[in-house]
């Protein structure tokens, strides 16, 4: 098992190297002049030139790249010009916020989509099946910023049920002691029920926005995969042996149908990372997405590169976990890899 893990990690190295190169080059080709932006609109050409020199932007691109890689090797992601903080520190403080939001949305989507998909497959052509189709179509057709704004309008502006969509906690609550960086978990661990409630109220709408987006592919794949497995010979055997409907559907059919669902989950997670950028903007969520967008607008290279690299690593780790999950779910995968 450890060998497979190490082998798998080694194969990700070229991908990571590619991400570093492409990301570096892309930020250099982007229009916009960092030096001019930071010098301000009233700066003289000499002042801009001065800043450019300080930032090392007057050097040839290969040299800049060399310096970037050397610093990267030391674990230094550079300095953000907008916040004035090291990029690593910024990411560290903001990543948990994004991760919490994304995972919350994903779990919410799973809780709804899996039963819906299973029900739609078991009772094909029933009300549940049609509901599944409608939810799926609506979920993919509505862009996240639109659903986000719609939810804010409905639940905050019209109904007044949810708090102002500003950040992770309302202004009176203070952040719980950091344990995981996830406010929901940390507040529970510290026993601060009030903080937990506040954090939950804040995360509900953005989480729901992401969940609606993630719901569609998961429900569709669950339904399709379940339909295929329910038609399999071994399900007929299980039925002929008189096993209860629950046992047949969950233990026999669903466990076999779960592999494609897990694969989709990996893809959905990466979509969510992208959708996060917009959702964080709409809900003023202090995550890495909004951080990266602000940096990009300011032509602030270091945070953008740091963000892309962090996302790439996150995605690779996630895929690794999915591969390992395969081995746990399906004994055939493990023996083929050995």
């Amino acid at each position: 098992m450890l060998r497979i893990l190490v082998d798998r990690l080694l194969t990700t190295l070229p991908a990571l190297a590619g991400v570093v190169v492409v990301c570096f080059l892309l930020t250099r080709v982007l229009p916009g002049d960092t030096a001019a932006y930071f010098a301000g609109p009233a700066a003289t050409p000499q002042a801009i030139e001065q800043i450019r020199k300080e930032l090392g932007l007057d050097r040839p691109v290969p040299e800049q790249f060399g310096r970037y890689v050397t610093e990267l090797a030391r674990g230094d992601l550079g300095q953000s010009l907008t916040t004035g903080q090291p990029v690593l520190a910024d990411l560290k403080s903001r990543l948990p916020a994004s991760a919490e939001l994304t995972l919350f949305g994903l779990v919410l989507a799973l809780v709804v989509a899996l039963p819906l998909g299973i029900l739609a497959a078991v009772k094909q052509g029933s009300l549940a099946d049609h509901l599944c189709r409608i939810v799926a179509t609506a979920g993919v057709s509505l862009p996240v910023f639109f659903t986000g704004l719609l939810l804010v309008y409905l639940f905050y502006f019209v109904l007044g049920w949810s708090p102002a969509p500003l950040g992770r906690l309302d202004s009176f609550a203070s952040a719980p002691p950091t344990l995981t960086g996830f406010y929901l978990l940390d507040s529970l661990a510290a026993g601060e029920v009030e903080t937990f409630r506040s954090a939950l109220a804040q995360i509900a709408l953005p989480g729901l926005t992401l969940a609606i987006f993630a719901l569609a592919p998961i429900a569709r794949i669950t339904r399709a995969s379940m339909l295929a497995v329910l038609g399999a010979d071994f399900v007929r055997t299980a039925r002929a042996a008189g096993l209860s409907g629950r046992k047949v559907v969950i233990t026999y059919a669903f466990r076999n149908a779960v592999l494609p669902v897990v694969t989709t989950l990996g893809m959905v997670f990466s979509f969510l990372l992208g959708a996060n950028v917009l959702v964080e903007k709409v809900f003023a969520w202090p995550g890495v997405g909004s951080y990266a967008v602000e940096a990009l607008i300011a032509s602030d290279y270091a945070p953008v590169q740091g963000f892309v690299l962090a996302m790439a690593i996150l995605y690779i780790v996630l895929n690794l976990l999915i591969d390992l999950a395969y081995g746990l779910i399906d004994p055939r995968v493990g023996s083929a890899a050995a």
């Binding site: 002929a240 076999n256 004994p331 055939r332």
Partner: peptide, 11 residues
Amino acid sequence: FQNPRAALNPI
């Protein structure tokens, strides 16, 4: 059943 391998739950 016919095709015994497929008639058993593979996992």
